[in-house]
């Protein structure tokens, strides 16, 4: 239902309705932003890529045709933008990732220590537990290989099915399925490792 409305909104925007774009943007901005944020070395880079995608969508509005879901089209643009970025800055990206890893490995240890003290002292509730695990998961997600991370995000952040993800990234459904499976197993292992540290 939502998807049909998405396509209608895009067509309205293509005909000059600015309000239609505002509705579309409000609906998809957060998940798309996080899609980039989880896969970029810095929030600044994520913002740049995020903005580029919307720019491309705005420019291509006159050529939009309802041949697939609007979100598939939007995330295909996003996926291509990310791939282009990796190709352009492959060396630079590796360096940044390594730096981030180092940084991440140090900072959580300090914060974890603080949280542990709180956990023991304040008899932590479920919300705090979730918050803690969510924080760990974010760190673990950063460590995933790029393709597994993207597949995981497209499924759990953007809500695509396996077939849709496969179509979007140009892979087979089986390939995407195994990427997600491997990714989730690594996340579980990483979280267990974090808990073991605790």
């Amino acid at each position: 239902m939502t998807e049909i409305v998405d396509e209608s909104l895009m067509l309205q925007y293509a005909q000059g309705d600015g309000h239609a774009f505002t509705a579309l943007y409000t609906r998809h901005k957060d998940s798309l932003y996080r899609y980039f944020l989880r896969q970029s070395a810095t929030p600044e880079l994520a913002e740049e890529l995020y903005q580029n995608v919307w720019n491309k969508l705005i420019k291509a509005r006159s050529t939009y045709q309802v041949s697939s879901k609007f979100t598939t089209w939007l995330y295909r643009i996003a996926h291509n933008e990310l791939i282009d970025h990796y190709r352009r800055h492959s060396t630079e990206n590796k360096v940044i990732t390594l730096n981030v890893e180092d940084k991440e490995t140090e900072v959580p240890n300090e914060t974890e220590a603080g949280y542990l003290a709180d956990l023991q002292q304040k008899n932590i509730d479920e919300q705090l537990y979730l918050s803690q695990q969510a924080k760990h998961l974010k760190w673990c997600l950063k460590q995933l290989p790029r393709q597994q991370k993207e597949a995981f995000l497209l499924k759990h952040e953007s809500g695509f099915t396996l077939n849709e993800i496969a179509k979007l990234v140009g892979e087979s459904s089986e390939g995407v399925k195994s990427r997600i499976r491997y990714g989730i197993n690594k996340l579980k292992h990483c979280l267990m490792h974090k808990m073991g540290k605790v």
Binding site: Y25, K29, D30, S31, Y33, R34, L37, E47, Y50, Q51, W54, N55, L130, S131, Q133, A134, K135, H136, L137, K138, L141, H156, E157, I184, L187, K188, L191
Partner: peptide, 21 residues
Amino acid sequence: IARFYSEGATEKPSAELDAKI
């Protein structure tokens, strides 16, 4: 895993970036 992810997925683009786009 899905629940932990959803719990932490709270980031949003800044209001300034929204206005710009």
